[in-house]
Simulated scan of single mutants.
Amino acid sequence: MSFKHKVVWITGASSGIGKALAIELSKQEARLILSSRKKESLELVKAACKNPSQVKIITLDLEDFTSLQPKVDKAIACFGKVDILVNNGGISQRSLVKDTQISVDKRIMDINYLGTVALTKAILPHFIHNKNGQFVVTTSIVGKIGTPLRSSYAASKHALHGFFDSLRAEHFKDNITVTIVCPGFVNTNVSKNALTGNGTPQEKMDTATKNGIDPDYFAKLMVKVINKQKQEVNIAGAKEKLGVLTKRFFPKLLSKMIRKLSVT
């Protein structure tokens, strides 16, 4: 599959993985729709793309998940269709279960899960009508392995796996595909923006995140995965990939390993 003239809509496109993905896809002549809450940042990403005239901007807030249908209508109107929706927007967390207010759990689920599901449901009839479409979902290795300080984040990512596995099965006959991408640590601002127990941002970079995969390199790998329409792929370091395998074959051993992780 070539991305030339394909219309790709990316949420969370103002920074990190979304930004890098937009720039990489623009090199492959895709027509892009970029979304996040931050219009000024999206304009900078658009300017960095190879062909800015083929890039449109639609601001949206996934947390306001009851108002996304007009955004979908606007996105379809940009180029007359949408071929691929990359559900990349979201927010992380850094707090212990006992210290996390329920309002924080709710906000993370509203953004990461319900916002993504609402946007997906809003555009699904368009894909069904066209008998073609691809949902790409950025989840996380934590969507497979719950670790300390990320209970709400892990829950939201686990939920996405369940939802999109079901959607894939239901709409196979409509030529609609689902690609789930599970990143490990990627060097973005995700840990700086992560919510603490009272809902305020952590505002500091985790060491593991700082040492993570370069987002530009990650985007190159992700584009290949999207192009091949893979069902589910882990793009992560060796330790994270080993953790996934260990959970599958030696779950009790992984539990012991996770208990030793720092919770401070």
Rank of each mutant, 00 (worst) to 15 (best):
F249E: 04
K256W: 12
T66D: 13
N189T: 15
F65G: 02
V263W: 12
V223P: 00
K220E: 07
V190P: 02
I145R: 00
L60N: 04
G199R: 04
T246L: 15
S140M: 01
V55A: 00
G212D: 03
S15C: 09
C182K: 13
T200M: 13
D61C: 11
A122G: 06
D216K: 14
T196H: 04
I108Q: 05
D61W: 04
K98C: 10
G197V: 05
K260C: 05
P70C: 09
A208T: 10
S103F: 06
V82D: 05
L245W: 14
P52E: 00
A118N: 09
K247V: 01
V82L: 10
S156D: 03
A159R: 06
K230I: 02
Y113F: 15
I17F: 00
K144L: 12
S140F: 00
V186N: 11
N132R: 11
S166N: 13
T200H: 12
K81C: 03
L149W: 05
A118W: 07
Q202T: 09
V97A: 09
S140P: 01
K220P: 00
T188P: 06
A159S: 15
I141V: 14
T66M: 11
L119C: 08
N227W: 00
V45D: 01
Y113W: 11
L261I: 08
R107M: 13
I57S: 06
D174M: 09
K204N: 11
G115H: 11
Q229G: 02
S2N: 14
A238V: 15
T196D: 07
S41R: 15
F79P: 05
A194H: 01
K121V: 07
V263M: 14
G115I: 11
G16W: 07
L42R: 07
I17R: 01
P148I: 06
E43G: 11
A194C: 02
P183E: 10
I176E: 10
D216Q: 14
F164C: 08
L195K: 07
S152F: 03
K230D: 12
V186H: 11
S166D: 10
H126E: 12
P125N: 10
L32V: 08
L119R: 07
